[in-house]
Design a protein around this nucleic acid. Structure first.
Lengths: 214, 214, 214, 214
DNA sequence: AATGAATGAGAGTTCATTCAT
DNA sequence: TATGAATGAACTCTCATTCAT
C-alpha cells in the first residue's frame, strides 16, 4: 500500500515523517488484527514500541491520528480516480476505468479498507470530511462522466448524481463481495460487469439500437 | 413495525416480551434523539423508567440488546422483500417492486436506519450476523429474481449474485442520497430509476431490440 | 467544624447527604494532611474507602467537589458575620463583633482554612464565586457598618469600601499570625485590638475629642 | 524592574546570570500574557528560544525556577521598604512612606504581582520561604516603626507585631482593591488613607488630643 | 423481580524530567 | 554546553457490569 505524506525536501521532516509512518502503520496493523475497538493510544504506542506520550509528540490527539491514517489510505484512491475522469476518453470507457481502478485499489488491502470505510468510529471521526469530502468527490467524478455521456447523447437523461451514487456503491458492493469470496474473478471481469450494467442501463434509445444492431 | 421475539408457548413470557419491547423502543428513541453515542445502559433504563440493573434481567449485555434492536428493525424489511420475490410476476417487475419496497421501508424512519446501518458500533455488534444473515438474504432475493430473468431469456448471462449485490447497494446508495437531500423525489421515481438501470443493464440483446422497437 | 448541607426532610436525601459529607471530610483530611496537591479523585476515594467511580456518583467533577467543600466550610462564616452586621448595635460594637466572630471561626480549624483560602487551586476553582461572592460579601458587610458610622457622625468621611477591605484583611492577617504562634492570645484580645485600631482610626474629630476626654 | 541574582565575583558566571535572567523574563512574560497555568517548561523554553532541556541546565527543577522568579520580583520591594524604615523620620511618616512605596511598587505591574502573590502554585512553591522570609521581613519593618512610635510616646502600647501584620495586609487589601477597580485613586491618596487609619488607630491619648486640637 | 449504589478497568491527555547525542 | 525526543507516571472522567438488598 502506498501512503504518501507531504514531505518537503528537508531532512528532519523526512525523519519525522518516518515516525509518523510507523505510528500509522501500527494503527493499521492493530485495526486489522484486533479491530478498531482495540486501537487505543496505549496499544498503538506499545505496537510501535514507544511510550504513550511519544505518540502525542506526533499527533495532537487520537482523532487527528485516525484521520491521517484514513486520509493516507484513501487520498491516493481519489487521486487515481480523478485521473480517470479527467482523461479524454469516451464516458463509457471512463466508467469502466473507474470501476477497474477502484476494484484494483481495494483488492490490494481488503481488510484495511473494510475497517477504514465501514467501521463506525472511523466514519464518525472523519464524517465531516467524508461526507463533504471523499465520498462526495468520488460520486461527483462518476457524475461528471455520466453527465458527459448525457450531453454527448450516449446516455439517457437521468439524475446523474443519483446514478453516480448507485455506480459508486455498486463498486463497493463488488469490493465487499470479493472480500467474501475465496478466489474472486479477475478485477477486470468484475469491473467489466459493473461498467456494462451501467453503460447499458444508461444507454440512450438510439445507442441501444445501434448497440443491438452491432 | 412488527417485532417478534422468540416466544415459546409459555404465557408469562408474553409479559417478558412486553418489557423487552419497551427497552428496545427506548433504545430506538434514544438513538434517533441523541445519537448512538448516548445510548448507554444508564440512559436506556432512564428512558424506560426502570433501573439500570433491570435491563440486565432481560438482556445479557449491551451487545445483545443492540443486536436485538437491529434485528427487530430490519427483519420486517427482509420479510417484505421476500414476499416480493416469491410472487409470480415478471423478473423486471420484481426488481422494481424490490427497490420500491426497500426505499419505502427506509423512507419511513430515516434516522433510525441511518444509525442502525451505518453507525460503526452497530455494524461491529452484528457484523457477523449481518454478513451471513440479513444482507446475504437480501442479496439472494435479488439474485433469485435475476436468475429467473436469465432463465427466462429476458436477462443476459451474468453472475447473478454479483449483480444482485450491486443492485442492493445501489438501493442503499439511493437511500443515503435521499437522507442527504431535503426534499427527495417520490420513492416511486427513485425506485423506477434503479429498476430501469438494472433492467436495461441486464437486458438480453433480443429484449433490447424489442424494447427499443417499442 | 459545623458543616451544613441543605437537607430536605426526605430520608434518602439524608443518606445521600451523609455520603457527600464523608467525601467532603475525606477531602479536608487529605488537604490538611498532605496538601491540596495530593487531593486527587483517586486519593479521595481511597480515603473514604470507596471506588473512584463512586465519587462521581455524588459529584459531577472534581471542581464541583472542591467548590462544595469550600462552600460548606465558609458559608457559615458569612452567615454568622451577616448576623452581626444586621444587628441593631452601634457601628463600633459591630466591628468588634465582626472581628471576634471571624477570629473565633477560624481558630476552630486553622489548617483547613489556610488551605481553603490561600491555596491557589482553591482560589482558581472558585475564583468567580469568591471574588463576586464570599469575600466581596464580607467586605460589604464591614463597609455597611462603616457607612453607618459615617452617617451617624461617629466615623470620618472615608471610602468605606476601601477601609472595609483593609479591615477584613487585617483580620485575616491576625488569623495568619495566630496560625504561626504557638499560644496565641485569647481571640477576644486580638479582636479587641483590631476593632480598636479601626474604630480609633476612623473616629470623627468630635468623637476623638470625646474619647480623649474620657 | 531591577532583578539581582546572587552573583559571586566570578566572571563566567556573569554569562550564566544573563541566561538565567532571560529565562526568568520569559516566565514573567508568560505569566502575564497567558496565566500561570500555561507556564510549562516547554512554553518557557519556547519563549526564550532555547530547548526545554537547556532550562534544566540552569534550574534544578520548575519549582526552583518559580521561586527565583518570585524572589527576583519581590526582593526589590523588601529593599525599598527597608530603606524607608531605616530612615530617621518620625514613625508616622514612616508608615505613610511604607504604604506609599508598597502601593507604588505594585501599581507598576499589577498583573505580575497578582499572579506572583495570589496564584496558588506560586504560594505553594514558596510558602516556606515566604512565611519565614519576605512577608516576615515586611511585617518586621512595620513593627519596627510601630515600636519606635510606642517608645517615643506617639503610639499606644499595642502588640507591635500584630498591628504590623494588620498594617501590611491592609496595604495588600488596598493593592487588591486597586486591581479590581478600573481607575483607582492616586496611590498617594490610598497610601494616605492607610497611614491615617493606622496612625490615628495607634495614637496615644495625648497625641489624640493634640491632633484633635489642631 | 427489581433495584441502584458501587465498582474498577481503562480511556485520552499532559508535562516535568531525563539522557543519548 | 545544548539539544529535544522520549519517557511514564499521574490526572480526570466514563460506563458496562455486578450484587446485596
Amino acid at each position: 500500500m502506498t501512503r504518501r505524506i507531504a514531505v518537503a525536501a528537508e531532512s528532519p521532516n523526512l525523519w519525522e515523517s518516518h515516525k509518523r509512518q510507523s505510528i500509522q502503520d501500527a494503527v493499521i496493523r492493530l485495526m486489522c488484527r484486533e479491530g478498531l475497538q482495540n486501537v487505543t493510544m496505549e496499544r498503538v504506542a506499545q505496537e510501535v514500541g514507544i511510550a504513550k506520550g511519544t505518540v502525542y509528540l506526533h499527533y495532537r490527539d487520537k482523532q487527528q491520528l485516525l484521520e491521517e491514517v484514513k486520509d493516507a489510505a484513501l487520498d491516493p484512491l481519489v487521486e487515481r480516480i480523478a485521473e480517470v475522469v479527467s482523461a479524454s476518453s469516451a464516458p463509457e470507457r471512463k466508467l469502466l476505468a473507474y470501476a477497474l481502478r477502484y476494484l484494483t485499489y481495494f483488492d490490494d488491502s481488503r481488510d484495511l479498507f473494510r475497517i477504514l470505510l465501514y467501521e463506525r468510529q472511523m466514519t464518525r471521526t472523519t464524517s465531516k470530511r467524508y461526507q463533504t469530502g471523499r465520498y462526495r468527490k468520488l460520486v461527483e467524478f462518476a457524475a461528471a462522466a455520466i453527465r458527459e455521456g448525457i450531453r454527448g447523447g450516449e446516455f439517457r437523461h437521468v439524475d446523474a448524481h443519483l446514478v453516480a451514487a448507485m455506480f459508486v456503491d455498486s463498486i463497493v458492493a463488488i469490493v465487499n463481495q470479493r472480500l467474501l469470496i475465496d478466489k474472486p474473478a479477475p478485477v477486470e471481469d468484475d469491473a467489466g460487469l459493473i461498467a456494462e450494467i451501467f453503460i447499458r442501463g444508461l444507454a440512450a434509445e438510439s445507442t441501444q439500437r445501434r448497440r443491438s444492431a452491432k
